[in-house]
Structures are given as structure tokens and as C-alpha cells.
Nucleic acid binder design. Sequence first.
DNA 1: GTGTTTATCGTCAGGCAGACGACTATGATC
DNA 2: GATCATAGTCGTCTGCCTGACGATAAACAC
Lengths: 252, 252
Amino acid sequence: MPYDPSAFPSFAVTVDLVVLTVRRHALCALAVRRGEPPFQGRWALPGGFVRADEDLAQAAARELAEETGLSAHDPSAPAQDNGAHLEQLATYGDPQRDPRMRVVSVAHLALAPDLPAPRPGSDADSARWAPVEELLQQGGYGRDGEQAAPLAFDHAQILADGVERARSKIEYSSLATAFCPPEFTVGELRRVYEAVWGVALDPRNFHRKVTGTPGFLVPTGGTTTRQGGRPAQLFRAGGATLLNPPMLRPEV
Amino acid sequence: MPYDPSAFPSFAVTVDLVVLTVRRHALCALAVRRGEPPFQGRWALPGGFVRADEDLAQAAARELAEETGLSAHDPSAPAQDNGAHLEQLATYGDPQRDPRMRVVSVAHLALAPDLPAPRPGSDADSARWAPVEELLQQGGYGRDGEQAAPLAFDHAQILADGVERARSKIEYSSLATAFCPPEFTVGELRRVYEAVWGVALDPRNFHRKVTGTPGFLVPTGGTTTRQGGRPAQLFRAGGATLLNPPMLRPEV
DNA sequence: GTGTTTATCGTCAGGCAGACGACTATGATC
DNA sequence: GATCATAGTCGTCTGCCTGACGATAAACAC
């Protein structure tokens, strides 16, 4: 049967982005306010349609650049630029997830260091970094006492899946360094783990673990005192991507 | 802009299945022979178009049932029936991956116990279980000395990703029991790990590990001698889905 | 009965993680 | 400038887990 177009239904395909960062000791995600129906005025994850000649990863990188100005680096290339980590998360295709038509969304997960502003070019309050607990608590109250409406579409589920992916992946990979600037201290890296996992870690054991794992961190020679206290050594992310044995997430 | 159909391109969406099982000490995948172009006569992963009113998981379960007769059980439900484990793997959307048109394929991973035959209703040699090394070795020679053509489309990449997912996931989850019949012995479970990882494991340490992990295995009281040697205790999979600490995969 | 196969229990040493003490080097405060 | 608060870094100790491997048990084949 040579390509009868009526033999299969037609779909729109989008990419949605879970962009995570750590700000003020909290895991935050990028949210944009929808300017048109459906879900007009509600917060949603950034995303958009995949173009006709575009790969899924290309589409995700393009959307990420449009929303944040970040360039995504290829995970297989050495991470030396300021680009964010970007990987495919999962695909969501419930027939009812978009009331307009049948849309399949390929969600991607991006991890970025703390950025100055959501995006200089965007509208004032059309995009923001919000703590993930705030975005995920359905019907709760946001920072300003304002009623927090749930995210549009199935974006709460997508965000929850992305957060869970990040939480588990920093256990056995060096991905936590994607939340850090190019040079960082052991303490800053520890605060990333503490923010993502929502726990407190012993600074001494953490220091022993990360400095004792070959290829995880390479010292740059410099020191900094930007966190106060005794000056700390500066490190860059080493070539190792997998942590073996993994970093252990404390119980509950 | 109210739903201008020209505002976004149209896609076909398919599900492709990586169905894995362990036969004769080897990790095998289900392959079907393509009866029509493109790639006519070549081996491919089973799959098909997602229907207009169908969720992605539903489509994958339907294809799995059509190809194998297996019913997929919901991962959140207790695994007591003979259903296979089914989970979403990744989505592949290169613009050139199908020469006919723009197709986005949502690949799924299924794990099944050893089955009697690929599918009673299917054609004689249109489907088979093949060792994954045989399917993945490009341009090598298959079992019968016959030139092994690579899998159709990007299915070699999809299969490799599915195998890698299975290999890593049995480390930290009880997923290996999905390759076993409802009741199995510790030795049978060990042979699953050995086949999937392609290594030899110490029977004594393996026995200590799996019987010492709470909730992993529950004894049924029965014994069997179907493997020869001393009768072995029979177990069912326990309620635990996560193994902590994980099963360690030996180096190289 | 002897040999073979598989299952199961035990022992021992090394490695790693959690708990926590001790010391160091900076800035802030009096 | 002494004192304090803060953060970073190095050690120690103990318990758990793993890998290596010896020993015993219970079936079948001859």
C-alpha cells in the first residue's frame, strides 16, 4: 500500500522544555505565561512546534535559545562553553492533552547555571524562574499569596518527570556540574545537590567523595572567597560523566 | 492565531517496540521481516501507526499484543499476571529517518519471559527472536553464515538504546524478574543477569545479594529441579521495585 | 557408589560511607 | 587588633557491603 495518506492519522509535534536551575538554594524551573487560549494567562513550560526539516534535538535547542539565550552543547562534546545540558526526557501523547487538536509533545530536559534574567528580549513578566514546588503544588498559594493555578496542559506531569530525572541522574553522573558556572567550588557543588535533593549533606564527607572520584573535578589552581569564610579551591568539571560508585542520596 | 493548519507541519506518529527476552543464555530481541518497501525483505523492529484516538502507551500495548500475544501490565500495578513489562524508551524524529514522509517514532521497551514461539498467528518466518549482537553487528554474518543486513530505518540505534536501558535498569531495579516466569529460582534469575550483561556472576555472592535484599524475592515454598542438580527454592517477585543498594555490574 | 551438577551456607579481607573531631583561613564586629 | 562567625579541608573510627573462595547438601547419570 503505497503511502495512502488516509491510512494513518496526522499529528502536530511539539517540543516542551523543562529548564532547571538552582537559585537561592532552591531548584527552579522556567515558566512562561500563555498569551492566548487555551489556558490563556496560565503558566506553562516553554516550547513550540517542530519545524518540517528539523530534528527533535534541533527543535529543542532552538526553543531553548529563543527562551533563554543559552546554547545547548552536544552531550558528546566536552562541556567547556557556557552552554546548557540538554537531553530528551519523554514523549506525551494523550489524545486529550491539547483541546485544539492531536498534539504529541517530545519533552526535553535542560540544566543551566543560575542566569541573570529569564531573557532580556522577552516581555517583562511573561517568563520567570519559579521554585518547582511552587509550580507543582496544585491549587496552593504562590510566593505572593496569590492563588497558584496549576500549569497548563499536562505540564505539571512533564515538570515532575523532569525533576525526578534530574534528581536521580545527579546520583550517578557528573550532571550536577551543569548547574554550576564554568569554575566552581566544592561547596557550591554541594549546595546544588542540597537544593536538587532538598536535603542537607555533610560538607566533610561530600568533599572527600567528590575530590576522591577520579575525573570528576579538576582543580584550576585559583581560589575564591565569594561565599565568605576561608577561601575555597576552584574546580572545573572533569571528563568523567559517570560516577562509580554513585553519590548516595540520603534516606528521606 | 486560531489553529491555522498551515502554521505547523503535519507528522505521522508510530510506535516501535524493542521486545527483549532471554533464550538459551542469550539476550534476544523480536525482529520482523518487512514485506514492503522501503527496506523490503530487511529485518526491523515491530511497530505501527498510532491511531487517532489512542494514547502512546495504548498503541504500544496493542502492537505488543498483536506481535506476541502478550498483554502489557501497567507498571504501577502489581505484576502478578503473565504480562510483559512495557515502558517508553525514547522518541526518534530525524527528518530523513523514513524516506516516504516525516515520521516520528515513539520507541517502547518490553521485557518478556521466554516465549514458545514469536506468534502463532504470524507468518512462518516473518518474525523471529534473534540475539541482539546478531542484529546489531552491521554487515556481519548471522547464525547461518548468511550475510546479516543491518536493521531497517534507524532501528539499530533504537535497539541499541533499548538494550542499554535494560542493562542499566536491572542494576538498580527488580526488572530482571520480568524476564522470568512467575515462579523462578535464584539460579534462573542469575542466568538472566549473566545473559543481559554478558558476564559470569559468582553464584554464592549473587544468592546472598538477592535473598538478602528485603522485598525483592518472596519464597513460594515449592522447589524445582528443572535445571538439574540440587533442588532449588522457587520464588516470586516481591513488591520492591527499586534495589538499594543496587546490584553491581562487574567491570568489563 | 562415584562423579557431576547445581544450590546454599560461611568466612575473611578490603573498600566505602556515615558520624564527627580538629584545624585553617578569611571577613565582620567590637 | 582581638574576637567571632563562617566556610573549607584533613583525619579518624566504625559498620556495612562486596568480592574471593572454601565447604556442604541434594539431586541425577553411570
